[in-house]
Design a protein around this nucleic acid. Structure first.
Lengths: 146, 146
DNA sequence: CGCAAGTCAATCGTGTACGATTTACTTTAT
DNA sequence: ATAAAGTAAATCGTACACGATTGACTTGCG
């Protein structure tokens, strides 16, 4: 059992570094689309299903309204989404893609492949690594988490 | 080659989620030590080698002074480090552990093992996963990076 | 020697993250 | 029917990240 406090032995540091390196790799590509990395993640959710509630987007990305509300306001200012309070339940805010937001999906289509090239992984390796990381994430969050 | 824009197929999202889940898992343990997660990483660097310059800490963690300067000031306020301008080179600021900062190392010793338990990984699996993630990180940063 | 180029930390501005609280609305249980 | 409990988003405060600039100091080159 590894109990050492050495930086390079720590899985947590490897993940932290990898996540920031990934964000940095995406940054120039997303910049061309006028998106930050977390904004891109929100767009991914909306491209899968338009009109999602703030809370649903939050569940998908594990982010709360304190993060999402200002982020969504910036996306609205950019003109790629609109926010509308539901008439059935006035507590809920639904988020919709604009025409510009829908158009952006095509331009974003080759972004992941571009990063994949740089990763030097085979498809099988990538899939395996992604699965392992996802399993780890679930374990870290604990059994109480959905 | 995976070109889909689906959230769950994206390695980037898996890494982003895992990194945040890891930070969340550490948070309660580090809170008992009065540290945030990035502050803990800085302490790891200093526990390995005391008196490191700001730029060296930055190289180790891939963080720049815009992030480190305020973080180090907070650690100084907490009383676990001191910052001293080098007399040989007045541009350089060296960071030293206080007695309290050195004492903290013992209390931090069992933190990684605590997380390791929760990960459900064997030591071999953890090592392999960490290596794969580190390799990926290096590739993402590109060949120009040290 | 003397100044241009380089280096190092600090600062500024913007954009996440997240715990905690607030406000508005809805549902539930009397 | 209504007060209590619950839920959804917004807000507030603190702490990263990072691009870009600034200011102080050092080095190197003519």
């Amino acid at each position: 059992m590894p109990t050492q406090l050495e930086l390079d032995n720590q899985l947590c540091f490897a993940l932290y570094s990898a996540s920031r390196a990934m964000t940095a790799a995406y940054a120039p590509l997303l910049d061309a689309l006028g998106l930050t990395y977390p904004q891109y993640l929100v767009m991914l959710v909306l491209w899968e299903r338009d009109g999602e509630r703030v809370s649903q987007i939050g569940k998908r990305l594990h982010l709360d309204s304190a993060t999402l509300t200002p982020l969504l306001k910036r996306l609205e200012t950019r003109g790629v989404i609109t926010r509308r309070r539901s008439t059935e339940d006035e507590r809920v805010v639904e988020v919709f893609l604009t025409a510009a937001g829908k158009k952006l999906e095509k331009r974003a289509a080759d972004v992941p492949a571009c990063i994949f090239e740089r990763s030097g992984l085979t498809v099988a390796e990538l899939t395996r690594l992604r699965t392992q990381i996802t399993t780890l994430t679930a374990r870290l969050r604990g059994p109480t988490d959905s």
